[in-house]
């Protein structure tokens, strides 16, 4: 292993810490104000559930949360240009990957936000098992796709 000093330096390290702090603050704020866990996959998945299972229940605060998240790049652009984005997968990869993330996070009841930030900060063993499972699986996937198959997706 060698550190990629091209993308990781003092400035990006501080931005990562501060940005992480903002994510943590957002999670605490939603719990404090709304009594809800800021788990993105749970919030979207619950809405999908209501539609698919034809339950007559309002989406409520979930819509507002997602609108805030969707609007964040637009608000960011008032102050600064958006950070660079380098995509790692083509159309097929995005389609397969997206379906896997949707299916997997619903079965696991959480993703990087729900289990990663909210669960771990509440010292949940269940969330720790989830985080180790998806981190390990993601690292193996990157290794296989990038180093064994030479970046096919």
């Amino acid at each position: 292993m060698s550190i990629d000093w091209q993308t990781f330096n003092g400035a990006t390290a501080i931005a990562a810490l501060l940005g992480g702090g903002m994510i943590g603050a957002a999670a605490v704020w939603l719990a404090w104000a709304n009594g809800r866990i800021a788990g993105i996959s749970g919030i979207i998945g619950h809405m999908v559930d209501l539609v698919v299972q034809r339950k007559h229940e309002a989406f409520g605060w979930r819509v507002a949360f997602l609108v805030g998240l969707l609007a964040s790049p637009l608000v960011w652009r008032w102050f600064a240009p958006l950070p660079e984005v380098h995509e790692q997968s083509g159309l097929i990869g995005l389609l397969i990957g997206g379906v896997l993330v949707g299916l997997g996070t619903r079965y696991a009841n959480g993703c990087t936000s729900g289990h990663g930030i909210c669960g771990l900060s509440r010292f949940s063993l269940r969330s720790l098992v989830a985080v180790l499972s998806f981190m390990g699986s993601a690292m193996v996937t990157v290794y296989v796709l990038r180093h064994l198959l030479g970046g096919v997706v």
Binding site: G98, L100, V101, L103, G104, Y107, F134, S137, M139, V153
Partner: peptide, 9 residues
């Protein structure tokens, strides 16, 4: 499963 999709994309 989630990790596989996350690693792919």
């Amino acid at each position: 499963l989630f990790g596989m999709g996350w690693g792919m994309t």
